[in-house]
Design a protein around this nucleic acid. Structure first.
Lengths: 334, 334
DNA sequence: AATTGTAAGCGCTTACAATT
DNA sequence: AATTGTAAGCGCTTACAATT
């Protein structure tokens, strides 16, 4: 690869000048002619700055670590797309890690100690995991996704309260009056917010709120069976449920079948979050789509500001509204 | 962070010696006492080598680029686990990229030109994509996953022929005599191999082979509908199908429902590759599980050998046999 | 004053040299 | 001969200096 000295020689100037011109150093205003000679030489030689040298000298790696609980979660695709888009735009490379593989303390702090990343985008399976990931990251710049840190600012969150409300309102609009919520763990801020939105919708519609119609087992497929069983065990079981997550909703469909309930005949189901998998369940799942791509972008932008020395903030990503994707899992009550 | 000079000062020796001892340089045999003093000093200071400095000096980044078509494919989880495991063991960090985001030529070769990676593990959506990814990587060490390069050696492949054979044999054992194959694109080596195994099983069982009972639409969900429709349009449609991929099998189940076929009553289905999603379709899918984790490990090991200057090889990962995971999508013919 | 150049130094590895 | 030290240099950025 061509180095700075090669470009300098080709352009007939010094390495210092080449570096400053190529980096658009605002303090150096070379003549247009010199600038062009340098740029042309760099283009002709296909010059690319050596990452290691730049990182060593400037003590910035221009790499951010993205830590998520499960790479194969379909929801992660859209988040990642946003993260990639914003990273490319702002000049960062993304180093990806599953949080299980990294909670093994050593690996996350090593990434820092080895000077491989400038900061982290963190998402744990629940608030405690996220908090401990952040603790491991220590004083490094961190932005947590869909959670908040107790002692530090620096988070981006979706509007989960709106999502819970919109899902419940959709069912109410279809005539349901007994509605359950299959929710994530109580330790998850997202779950608490979705429940708040859910409750608000019922209250506004003048519907009664039974504590037993909300479960807090979790967002994953296996959590759905005990949740649905518990909800349907009521004297007057609901005719519809909001499920906190598409993945758990797949489990709800399976469990409904086991309980002999037809969807949406006996039970309507709407899930929060949209994913391609929702198209291929039976029946196809009606969902509330949240702007995960935008969440990823906002997370990168927030970290970028932190890396620039600006203070952390807790942000709500509400510039794109949640949207109901109608499929076939909701009908009127029997 | 503590630097080499800090450790050297603490141990009362020179930086050169510290570097050699910590890196287990075989040419330097320090006294046991010195060695211990150095190691203790390093431990006490929490010394970690600065990655940028090491990369700059040694012209090795100890980072490998892993490029896959779709991060959210459930199959990728197990592959990634193997890649991570072997990378950690051999001292590499993994930089992850989707191949769509990277075919955009610039990004893949930039990773190299910027000196961010030593080499690549590549997997494209099909043979042509993989080939062009490899072309973009140029002279960099490359190992392709589940495909082969025309002009270069350096690949790891699953035993797809065995998988196709095992799937077909399983259906034959259940009494099926008219069996279809919903396969991936003909351009995919994996698809051709699965078809070969499939045909061999039918031939060995003395069953007739109709060209029309094999389709080549692709491995993804939407490819399944036209495939199944075309197969079931035959005068004597099959009573069972092998589906080349779990994801496509989800589409097959949806399409069967649309065609009014019950699974496994009217049609038995077995898919190649196992994933968590297979547990949550209706009915749960019987699959042939292939050793994807081992594939990932072998890929890293192969790249490691290339980076050590050894020549590329084309390897078949057959040290773990494919295994049928019985669920509920296969029964005897009606 | 406007433009360009010089050279130090980031933290390592490693050839070569020096010491016991 | 066995053990340890010295110093150059990887490719950048940037404070400071020099030139027009």
């Amino acid at each position: 690869m061509a180095r700075l000295v090669d470009v300098a020689a080709a352009a007939g100037v010094s390495v210092g000048l080449v570096s400053r011109v190529l980096n658009d150093d605002p303090a150096t205003r070379a003549t247009e002619e010199t600038r062009q000679r340098i740029q042309r030489a760099a283009d002709r030689l296909g010059y690319r700055p050596n990452h290691a040298a730049r990182a060593l000298r400037s003590a910035r790696t221009y790499t951010i670590g993205l830590v998520v609980p499960d790479l194969t979660n379909a929801l992660f695709a859209e988040l990642m797309r946003g993260v990639e888009e914003a990273s490319a735009r702002l000049g960062y490379t993304v180093l990806l890690g599953r949080s299980e593989a990294l909670t093994d303390e050593s690996r996350i702090s090593r990434l820092l100690d080895d000077g491989r990343v400038d900061g982290f985008l963190l998402q744990g399976r629940d608030a405690d995991t996220t908090e401990s990931l952040a603790a491991i990251a220590g004083t490094a710049p961190v932005v947590v996704i869909n959670s908040r840190m107790r002692r530090r600012q620096g988070s981006v969150m979706l509007d989960d309260q709106a999502a819970g409300r919109i899902a419940a309102e959709y069912l109410i609009r279809h005539g349901h009056r007994r509605i359950g919520l299959v929710n994530g763990l109580r330790s998850l801020p997202t779950a608490r917010l979705r429940a708040a939105g859910f409750r608000a919708a019922l209250r506004d519609a003048g519907l009664p709120l039974r504590a037993k119609s909300i479960t807090w087992f979790g967002y994953t497929v296996p959590d759905a069976a005990p949740a649905l069983e518990s909800i349907m065990a009521a004297a007057q079981p609901p005719s519809a449920v909001v499920v906190g997550n598409v993945n758990a909703a797949m489990g709800v469909l399976t469990e409904a079948r086991r309980l002999g309930l037809s969807v949406p005949g006996d039970l309507s189901v709407i899930a929060i979050h949209d994913a391609w998998t929702a198209d291929h369940t039976w029946p196809p799942l009606t969902t509330v789509k949240l702007p995960l791509g935008r969440l990823g972008e906002r997370a990168v932008e927030a970290l970028h500001r932190r890396l620039d020395g600006r203070p952390g903030e807790d942000q709500l990503v509400d510039d794109v509204a949640p949207e109901v994707i109608e499929r076939e899992s909701v009908a009127g009550p029997a």
